[in-house]
Amino acid sequence: MARTIAIVEDEQAIADNYKDAFTRLGFKVDHYLDRRSAQTAFAVKLPDLAVIDVGLGDDIEGGFTLCRDLRAKAPNLPIVFLTARDDEFDVISGLRLGADDYLTKDISQAHMLARIHALFRRVDAMHEPANGDDAIERGNLLLNSSRMSVQWQDKPIDLTVTEFWILYALAKHPGHVKNRQQLMDAANVVLDDNTITSHIKRIRRKFNAVDADFDRIQTAYGMGYRWLGDA
């Protein structure tokens, strides 16, 4: 059965473009123009993945509200936020709404689709037994690239797809400095340097929430970042 992707987007043209692209890849796509219609539909049936615009018409933060509702209903449903503004990343992060990824609207379709696939892979991997080959263990860190799951000191860390790939790129070769471009390539995003920096900060914060002494991700000033291996 084809997976269902729900697009909640008030710009008809943008929604149409995504709808066409997703449909071409064999997904079933439902488009909702505002929060109300989306909520009504979600009450009946949940999609397999939701792409939500933050600003929905007059409802400036309608996307956030919708995400919270959806997350409450389905804890494992992948949610991708679309925003027109960079600064909303921080709002989303601050609210800890539990989105799996957030992207700016001008991201290319290829990048967008790569993320959608990654998210579905993660969902699928959770239902399968863990594959030892996909796992990386770096001291207290346990990474599973097929499940996109992260554990630190045996406690799960909830990372977005972008964050996961950045961490993965770093932890794969401990001690190697990864520059920003390499991290962007790994995460399949086109971001400016500052955004990479804020992603790194968010990753550190999420680890710090579990382990206040976490200091494995080191800044190599002028070059990039590296994962510190155990001595």
Partner: peptide, 13 residues
């Protein structure tokens, strides 16, 4: 960004 997204999305399609 919104019209830009329309343009890039349309071109991708």
């Amino acid at each position: 960004r919104t019209p830009l997204a329309v343009v890039t999305g349309s071109l991708d399609n």
